[in-house]
Amino acid sequence: MHELSLCQSVIETLQRESLQHHYQRVKRVRLEIGPFATVDEEALRFAFEVARSETLAEGAELEIIRSEARARCRSCSNSFAITERFDPCPLCASHELELLSGEELRIVDLQVE
């Protein structure tokens, strides 16, 4: 359940940014989570409810954008979408892949007032 520490870190960021961007409340947070970000979405939603209480994000909505994982094959240079880390290259079956995306764990934007 490291999702709780991730959410606490999101809340800390919201508090820090509130000083710079001058807002009192956060209404919605959008996160981008890659399929290989080691995050369970259900656990993250539950942890967010715990972490947001009695903070400036109390009651804030959590929106999660699931990004796509893409890889490039080192053998044949083909670039393609993958669903598992152990997927082979669909063209040449090699496992020598370079991950191009899929580990994102990012706060995209906030709706504030």
């Binding site: 960021t13 940014e17 996160l31 995209v108 934007d109 906030l110 709706q111």
Partner: peptide, 11 residues
């Protein structure tokens, strides 16, 4: 209400 783009890594 307004939108703030952060694009910040959670970690």
């Amino acid at each position: 209400e307004r939108l703030i783009r952060l694009e910040q890594d959670i970690l």
